[in-house]
Structures are given as structure tokens and as C-alpha cells.
Nucleic acid binder design. Structure first.
Length: 275
DNA sequence: AACCCTCTCAACCGCCCAGCG
DNA sequence: CCGCTGGGCGGTTGAGAGGGT
């Protein structure tokens, strides 16, 4: 896309990933696990820089990624967390099992940021203002969004805690939220078994029984290489049994707002979300 | 049908931090 | 303490899709 070569490596491939590259990357990570991104491409036989491999894996190929529509609940949570945390997408993503920071960031920039522009309180981000013009897209995200029609209450402007680096990215950590962080949970919670996860590439499929994702299209192409049951799962935390965790967090947040105890408490609340 | 314009999102960049020797 | 390296994060870009004219 017209930029200087990543990582100063000339001769490396850039741009969209091919199915073959994806397959190589998944296959390698299956066998060797994540990490050592810099040396991974060479060992996996990829002409990509390590960062590119990491990004592709983290944002697209990981088996525990939840593709498809952002649900109204998720959207609401994104708005709330953004009002608390600002543009700390990885932290927000950490509260949304199966969602990536990139996905949330994109969603914010394309949907929520635009919507909140009409709100009295501007969002924290400093993005350029998206166009107001409406547009429909037939991408797999056309969930009728109730909040799209009636704007949510303006998020209160809150103190932004200092950035904190969270090393165990994305889907970790506490069970404050509904931890449907596996395919099985995601799908079964919606009463759908053997459902194709909505993804542009339609590769990950939930078999509905052991909740294992596998690369369906790839399997057609190369049965032996990508076998879903071999894909390492990243179930980090036992699923919470409380489906109302979103609301609990929000209620807790509202309580703090009501107490007028100022930024200190809000900050500590925000910090508590950073576990 | 053809062109233009807008929107979406995968991919990239640059910077920063943590860990290690 | 310092420098190096690997890894992670937030901001930005631009190709492609699709609606509008």
C-alpha cells in the first residue's frame, strides 16, 4: 500500500495475505506456538516481516477470534469503556472476548465515533471526523443496530488513566465479563451449532461439538495441513456464568458517577478493569 | 452501463516498553 | 546503568466494495 518496507526489510512481501501464507502461518504456529515473531517468518517459510505475521495471527487467524457483528451489548460496552479508558483499544478488547483491538478500533472509527460526533460530549479519540453521509454495506456487519437509531446517552467525560501496558493481550484475564472466549461458547450461547463463523474468508468453522475451530476452506485445499482439532485453543479463563456482567460493570460505573467522589474513584475503577 | 464518491477494514508504520545480558 | 531486541499498541493508510447519479 505504498509505504516504505516494514522493518526495513526489502524483498519481503507486503499487502494482503494469500491463503497459502495464512496456511503456512497457522501451520507453523500450530507446531511451534506463538512468539519469536522476528524469526518466525523465516522458519515458517514466509516472506513477511515478523510484525506482519504477528498482526495477521492476532487479528485474523487466531482460532478464538469472534468474527461477525458487534452486538448491541458489545457496542454499549465499547462506548462505556472508551469513556473510561480512551483510545486504549487493547484494554477495551480485553473486555470483549474474541474481539481484537484492531476490530474495535475500526468499529469505533467507522461507527461509534461518527455517531458520537453528534453527542454533546466528544469522544476521546482525535481521529479526523468521518463523513456524516450514511452508507450501507453488505459486509457481515449489518446487524440492525438499535442504538444507531436512537442515540445512546452521551457518555460522561471522565478522567483518562495513564496508559498501562498490558502484556497478555486481548482475551485474558478476568471473568468480570461474559467469557465466551471460545468458539463453543460463542456459538452455543447463540444456540447455533456447526455454524460458520462470519468471516470474510469463511475458513473458521465451529464443529459445534468440541468447539474446535478449523479452517474449512483450507481443509479443502490441503486436508493434512490444517486440522482444526490441532489448533491450539486459547481458552484462558473459565467462562463466567453470569451473563449480566456487562450490566454489572455499567451499574458499578454509574454508582461511582453518582457518588461524586471524583476522579480518584473513577480511576481506581478503571484500574480495576485493567487486571 | 459507466463513472464518481464514500465507507470499511486489513495491513502497515512508528513509537514505546519490558526483559535480558 | 546502558544498549539491544522482541513484542505490543495506537494511529494511519489505501485497496476494494458498493451505493449514488
Amino acid at each position: 500500500m505504498g509505504r516504505a518496507p516494514c522493518c526495513s526489510k526489502v524483498g519481503l512481501r507486503r499487502g494482503p495475505w494469500t491463503a497459502r501464507e495464512d496456511r503456512l502461518l497457522v501451520s507453523y504456529i500450530q507446531g511451534h506456538g506463538e512468539g519469536h515473531w522476528r524469526s518466525l517468518p523465516k522458519r515458517a517459510g514466509l516472506l513477511r516481516c515478523g510484525k506482519s505475521c504477528r498482526l495477521r495471527w492476532m487479528n485474523y487467524l487466531r482460532p478464538d477470534i469472534k468474527r461477525g457483528n458487534i452486538t448491541p451489548d458489545e457496542e454499549d460496552l465499547i462506548i462505556r469503556l472508551h469513556s473510561l479508558l480512551g483510545n486504549r483499544w487493547s484494554l477495551i478488547a480485553g473486555r470483549l472476548p474474541g474481539r481484537t483491538d484492531n476490530e474495535i478500533k475500526n468499529y469505533w472509527n467507522t461507527h461509534l465515533g461518527k455517531r458520537l460526533l453528534t453527542q454533546p460530549t466528544p469522544p476521546h479519540n482525535t481521529r479526523k471526523k468521518p463523513s456524516q453521509k450514511k452508507r450501507k454495506k453488505s459486509k457481515p456487519n449489518p446487524t440492525p443496530d438499535p442504538a444507531e437509531e436512537e442515540a445512546p446517552p452521551a457518555p460522561p467525560k471522565l478522567h483518562i488513566p495513564k496508559p498501562i501496558r498490558v502484556t497478555s493481550l486481548s482475551l485474558p484475564t478476568n471473568d468480570s465479563f461474559d467469557q465466551c472466549n471460545t468458539f463453543s461458547t460463542v456459538c452455543s450461547s447463540q444456540g447455533k451449532d456447526a455454524e460458520v463463523i462470519q468471516a470474510p474468508w469463511s475458513r473458521y468453522v465451529n464443529d459445534g461439538e468440541n468447539g474446535t475451530g478449523f479452517l474449512s476452506a483450507y481443509d479443502n485445499e490441503d486436508q493434512g495441513l490444517v486440522n482444526g482439532s490441532d489448533v491450539e485453543r486459547h481458552s484462558r479463563v473459565p467462562a463466567s456464568e453470569d451473563d449480566n456482567d456487562f450490566d454489572k460493570i455499567y451499574e458499578e460505573y454509574l454508582q461511582i458517577l453518582k457518588t461524586n467522589e471524583g476522579e480518584a474513584q473513577l480511576e481506581s475503577f478503571a484500574e480495576s478493569l485493567l487486571i
